[in-house]
């Protein structure tokens, strides 16, 4: 009986694992096959990879999309971490009732659905388009700016700052460091893991972001990777092999980040809940 139950558990887990992994296997296999073979359900790797890559890079501007996505993700990650950690540190180290009240108000913004603020944001950037062109609609900065200040990361850094030894702040003051100096020279280096975890989440969110770029970026040369894939997928006569190649390229950075930094990855997710 017990053995039978064990077998059942393994069977259940194996099916679950197969279902989870299968789409990945399928996209990697399909990347190497012709479009016809993909539609016919071929599940064996083929020899069409270079052809698919060639067609992809010749017919759509993948390079531009990769460059745009990289610029947006890197700048977003940097600013998100800087602003989020400054605030999280500020709220925890210079704690006061007034700041706690503000903190709670900021947390409320996590409940605001993006769809509700999307239109006013679009109009806001539309309004400044003529006076501040580099910040208007269809600019990378407009795609970046509204996403860099989030209550989630302020909360995340505050939670983690609770575990930071506050004596180090006093020690820094004794050594005559300025308050900002303490932050950059003491806090930042000791909180490396927290920053790593936050960087992973911020990068992935930005790399995969779809709705806001879809709204604010309009010209083809501003396209990001998710926009490119969405457009490819919506085509009437899709070349499946080529599209799968594009999807693999889009998934590669986040998958690599996951496999290389699995520990930080999970820690990052959990960091927001514990404490």
């Amino acid at each position: 009986m017990k053995k039978l139950k064990r077998t059942g558990v393994y069977l259940f887990l194996s099916v679950a694992a197969l279902v989870s992994i299968f789409p990945f296997l399928w996209m990697i296999i399909s990347m190497t096959n012709k479009s016809v073979d993909v539609t016919q359900g071929r599940l064996i790797p083929g020899t069409h990879l270079f052809e698919n890559l060639k067609v992809l890079f010749e017919t759509v501007d993948v390079v531009t999309a990769l460059v745009n996505s990289t610029i947006i993700a890197v700048v977003t990650t940097f600013l998100t971490l800087l602003i989020g950690s400054l605030a999280g540190y500020g709220f925890e180290i210079y704690r006061s009732p007034g700041k706690d009240r503000i903190f709670n108000i900021l947390l409320l913004s996590m409940m605001i659905p993006f769809a509700a603020i999307m239109i006013p944001l679009y109009r806001l950037f539309g309004g400044i388009s003529s006076s501040i062109p580099f910040l208007g609609i269809d600019t990378l900065s407009a795609a970046i700016l509204p996403t860099v200040v989030t209550a989630f990361f302020i909360f995340f850094f505050r939670q983690n700052t609770k575990m930071f030894a506050k004596e180090l702040v006093e020690a820094g003051r004794m050594d005559g460091l300025s308050e900002l100096g303490i932050f950059f020279r003491i806090y930042l280096p000791t909180m490396k893991t927290t920053y790593a975890a936050a960087a992973i989440i911020a990068f992935m969110n930005s790399w995969n972001n779809y709705l806001w770029p879809l709204v604010i970026l309009q010209s083809p040369e501003k396209q990001t990777i998710p926009l490119l894939i969405s457009n490819l997928g919506a085509g009437y006569s899709p070349d499946y092999g080529v599209i799968m190649t594009a999807i693999v390229i889009a998934t590669l950075p986040t998958a690599l980040v996951f496999f290389i930094m699995q520990k930080h990855f999970v820690a990052g997710m959990m960091g927001s809940v514990k404490g």
Binding site: A87, L106, S109, A116, I117, P120, L121, L124
Partner: peptide, 26 residues
Amino acid sequence: NYIGWLFILIAVIGIGIFYFYPMLRA
């Protein structure tokens, strides 16, 4: 204390401009 407020300043302004202000406009 004044420095403490400076640390949270950008975040407070940012969330004000990019979350609460659009909420009000909506």
